[in-house]
């Protein structure tokens, strides 16, 4: 459990670095690169959604293996 917290903390730290450096509204960064950043963010969101389902599947298969 500690490892998970640490991972999330580090992930949060790294991912928000550019935001805190600018000290700007989160939404402002989406407008960069002729608003191409919005497209990249959308792709990242979709990817994370699929990974969440992968993690769920992993846990359920693990539970089946232990029977």
């Amino acid at each position: 459990m500690k490892k998970i917290y640490l991972t999330f903390f580090l992930l949060n730290f790294v991912l928000t670095l550019p935001l805190r450096a600018q000290n700007a509204d989160v939404g402002e960064y989406l407008l960069r690169g002729n608003k191409l950043y919005a497209v990249i963010t959308v792709l990242v969101i979709i990817f994370i959604g699929i990974v969440i389902f992968l993690v769920n599947m992993d846990r359920r298969i693990k539970a089946l293996e232990e029977i």
């Binding site: 939404g27 919005a38 969101i45 959604g49 389902f53």
Partner: peptide, 16 residues
């Protein structure tokens, strides 16, 4: 899942 992704991605697009 796709519905939630649609909402979140739509929210990002709305912000821009």
């Amino acid at each position: 899942l796709f519905g939630f992704l649609g909402l979140l991605t739509g929210s990002v697009w709305a912000r821009t």
